[in-house]
Amino acid sequence: MCIQQFLSRLALVLSSVFLLSSCTGIAPRGGGDILVIGDSVMAWNRTSNQAISDVIGSKLSRDVVARAVPGAQFDNNSAIASAVGFDIQSQYPEGRWNWVVLNGGANDMGFGDCGCGDCSALVTKLISEDGQSGLIPTFLDGVQRDGAKVLWMGYYNSPGKSFTGCADDLAALEARIKRNLANRRNGYFLEGEDFVLKSSPSHFAKDDTHPSPVGSAILGTALADIISKADGRSQGRSPQL
């Protein structure tokens, strides 16, 4: 791991400790309406109540539980890491949810064994080339057995350099996830790069990697639109569990 990646990870871990202390991610017993899980892209701007999850809740006037944690990997096999939210699968509390909105995979590559080098084996572990098997499809199967619609948010291209070595593998990962969701009833995918634009500095935080409040608002609004259209209800109407 290069020094830049190490420093980026350290910054994420330190910010995670702070965010966890102010996190609103206490899940109701038995489930709820909308659950948001994932990594720092989902969690960024939470301390100012401007994270993607905050925007979704505001746009839809619906209850959103936010459990995303900066630095989280989709598959983190450390028991301690899982206990504090650094494993995205462990962020899911099970129960009956109407929607589970999530992202992930970049930290598995950036901070895992492949170190944003050749991560093709890791990509296949997460999801096979045909999109039908692997850790991600298995996890999504379980979420949908519990009754939830699934909405995966793809990453965007950023001016930052932290994950440039992962670009090809991240593209392959998300192409497979998109293929899986296209064949899945109540499965949806948002192309993050269609909304947060590398050419628009206002979309990014000072680190040029995470979304600014503007970027979070753009992504949260796009996700809320998908949810609203899929549910066939106007924004602001209370859901029935």
Rank of each mutant, 00 (worst) to 15 (best):
F86C: 03
E94M: 07
I34T: 10
K161Y: 06
G131K: 07
I177Y: 03
L190D: 03
S40H: 05
D168F: 00
G220D: 07
L20C: 08
V64T: 03
W152C: 05
R9M: 15
I226D: 06
E129F: 00
G134V: 06
C119A: 09
T47M: 01
G110V: 08
D75R: 00
G31V: 09
G154E: 05
V214T: 14
V100T: 12
G85Q: 08
I177R: 04
V36H: 03
G25T: 03
Q132K: 15
L12K: 06
M109E: 03
R29V: 12
P70M: 10
G112T: 12
D141V: 11
N76P: 01
F111C: 06
G142V: 00
L60P: 00
Y92V: 11
D33A: 06
G117V: 12
A66W: 01
G115Q: 13
T138N: 12
P239G: 06
D194Y: 13
M153Y: 06
D208E: 11
S120Y: 10
R233N: 09
L60G: 02
S16M: 11
I177N: 06
A72I: 00
L140N: 02
C2W: 14
T209A: 10
L7I: 15
V55T: 11
L140M: 09
G236E: 02
S61P: 00
C114R: 03
A66R: 02
E193W: 04
R179W: 00
S238M: 08
I227Y: 03
A167P: 01
K59P: 02
F86P: 01
S200R: 14
L151G: 05
D141Y: 04
L173D: 07
N183M: 04
G112R: 04
P239Q: 12
Q91Y: 08
M153T: 12
H210C: 10
K149Q: 11
G57S: 11
Q91R: 08
G142T: 05
R96K: 15
L181T: 07
I127Y: 04
Q73A: 14
K149I: 08
G85P: 01
G131T: 00
E191Q: 14
G57E: 08
G142I: 02
G104I: 02
K149M: 08
F111E: 06
G220N: 07
I218N: 00
D118H: 07
V41H: 15
D208S: 13
W99M: 01
F189Y: 15
W99S: 04
L14C: 13
P211V: 10
P201E: 05
V55G: 05
D39K: 12
N98P: 00
D33F: 02
